[in-house]
Amino acid sequence: MVFAYIGLGANLGQAQATLRQAADALARTPDVQSLELSPFYRSAPIDSSGPDYVNAVARIETMLAPLALLDALQAIEHAHGRLRPYRNAPRTLDLDLLLYGNQTIDTPRLTVPHPRMHERAFVLKPLSDLAADLCLAQGPLDALLALCAGQDLQRLP
């Protein structure tokens, strides 16, 4: 069993409902034993366009191997109409494998830890809600969040 952290985001359609449905689908995935979901946050797009995003992070305990977990995440995205017309396009659902235990993975399909998570308040804040003491290679979450202070992030009710 390993703890993995998944970033969830959407900026098309009913984003909050989509994130809840995706979290439910992930919790029902075979070999996923538990799921804890952070609060939801609204953020402006970074390096993309379109409406504001709704973001969250899920912590799961799983027996799935990293690529099998990636396949499961992509199947959930596909079930929610995820299209990839171009890089950073607006999306109905985006699921990113942020961390997989303490492993470092660098393959053509998957890079873990996620290479830009330390620069994104919309990942760091919900991640800190689940694991405040977590320290990434770039530093502790609170210090990394301080470096993202210019990124607008609003916790949703």
Rank of each mutant, 00 (worst) to 15 (best):
Q154K: 14
T29E: 10
D47H: 12
T104G: 05
A44Q: 15
A25S: 13
A143L: 12
A4R: 00
T18G: 01
L64S: 08
L145A: 00
P51W: 00
A27T: 03
R116L: 10
I60S: 04
Q151A: 12
T18V: 04
P30G: 09
P51L: 06
A132L: 05
R109Q: 15
R155A: 12
L141E: 02
P90R: 07
Q21L: 03
N55E: 09
Q14K: 15
S48Q: 14
A75N: 10
V57H: 02
A79M: 08
A149G: 15
A10E: 02
Q154Y: 11
M63I: 05
A68H: 08
T62C: 11
R91K: 09
S43E: 10
L127E: 00
S49A: 15
N88G: 10
H114M: 09
L70K: 02
A23E: 01
D129N: 13
V112T: 07
C148I: 11
L141G: 02
M117I: 04
D142Y: 11
R155S: 10
N11V: 04
A44L: 13
D94E: 08
P115F: 11
L141I: 07
N11M: 03
E36W: 05
A68D: 13
D47A: 14
Y100T: 00
R82K: 13
A58V: 01
R91T: 00
L141F: 05
I105L: 13
S43I: 05
L130E: 01
N88I: 11
T104F: 02
D52N: 15
P90L: 06
Y41Q: 12
D71P: 05
H78V: 10
G150T: 06
A25C: 14
S49F: 14
R59G: 04
R42T: 09
T92A: 07
P108E: 11
R116G: 12
L144W: 03
G50M: 13
L83P: 02
L97Q: 02
S34Q: 11
N55L: 04
A44V: 13
F40T: 11
R116F: 10
D106C: 14
